[in-house]
Design a protein around this nucleic acid. Structure first.
Lengths: 189, 189
DNA sequence: TGTACATCAGTGAACGCGCGTTCACTGATGTAC
DNA sequence: TGTACATCAGTGAACGCGCGTTCACTGATGTAC
């Protein structure tokens, strides 16, 4: 257990700044984020975030990497639990709604270092988890088929429209049920 | 024809600033847009954009309104021309790709005045054009069914993933063909 | 176990910059007579 | 048709602010002996 009360050697500056970033993004989006604001939120000196993450792109790279990891975990968990492709899609929407700040960053690669090695690994893992293996996780294909892209597009679009408030009131209650109803039209056929 | 060379009374400051905004958004996205930068691009004084549009939200409201108008036109034209729902979806993707700057603003209502009367009219017209009337344009429904939302989600998601470079190389050639192949999986059934 | 020293994580004052906003102004256009 | 005046679109100098970056520093931790 690190000594958090010490003025120097924060203990987990990285975590504190990332958490502050999640809050800040929830309030105003990722593009207008300022390192000085994150420092204020995390109660560290204004230079600390830049010292740790180099710059804003570095910070958002770390955040996106974490996001892709969590997304991959969620999708794999849904597949393991239900064995249904439809529920993997519902988990995708669930992730976007539950982790909106992460989701907003992950799909704006202009904001971060899209060729960072750790990020690429996490992103590939998430993409791979999106491909439902007919014979189980071990023999799933590596490339995305048109059907994979259609399914991805549908859940990604639904999540985006849900998040930005474009959907009419009937659809803005529980995202799981709405996602299941909408995605079911494609996934069952 | 307005006298464009006159230093005062630009002639069409509104158009010039909106066009500058489209360029600036294409380069760096809508969130980091600065009114002073637009003034530089449009060759007007730094205070002119704010004088004309009040603030950044006012500018982006005008831009989003124009975008929803163009989108509605495109969708209705596709329906009239082909009579096929699939081609309305393809036109949606085509619009997003051809007018990326507009598309990026339109679905980020936090950036503009989402309850502006003119904007609401344009947005409703686009939403309405998205609902394919089985018996022609005059007797289409007003509410979005689950099938409508599925179709909208699919083309919106496909356009988003295409624009942010998430799709694998096989899909990043001509968006029309790729969109037709992917959307066909849902629309034909 | 005790001391010396290197390392490393974070500090905080200072800087220059671009931003939005204010405000007194200027010059073109429209209207009244 | 000609003149006077009000209006309105845009100007440009000035302001204060928050930002990222730099840099000499400080204090905790780890390692060598």
């Amino acid at each position: 257990v690190p000594s958090v009360n010490s003025a120097y050697h924060h203990g987990d500056l990285r975590r504190a700044v990332l958490d502050a970033a999640v809050d800040a993004i929830a309030e105003a989006g990722p593009a207008t984020l300022s390192l000085r604001d994150l420092a204020r939120r995390a109660n560290v000196s204004h230079a600390a975030p830049a010292y740790h993450f180099v710059d804003k792109a570095g910070l958002l790279t770390a955040l996106a990497t974490e996001g892709f990891g969590t997304l991959a975990d969620s999708l794999l968990e849904a597949e393991r639990r239900t064995g249904q492709f439809l529920e993997v899609g519902v988990a995708y929407v669930r992730f976007a709604v539950d982790h909106q700040s992460y989701f907003e960053v992950m799909f704006r690669p202009d904001l971060y270092n899209a060729d960072d090695p750790e990020l690429r690994v996490a992103r590939e893992r998430a993409r791979h988890a999106l491909i439902f293996g007919a014979g189980g996780a071990e023999n799933r294909a590596t490339d995305l088929s048109a059907a994979n892209v259609a399914a991805w597009s549908l859940v990604h679009g639904f999540a985006s429209l849900w998040l930005n408030g474009s959907l009419p009131p009937e659809f803005s209650g529980d995202p799981d049920d709405a996602a299941r109803a909408v995605a079911g039209l494609l996934f069952r056929s």
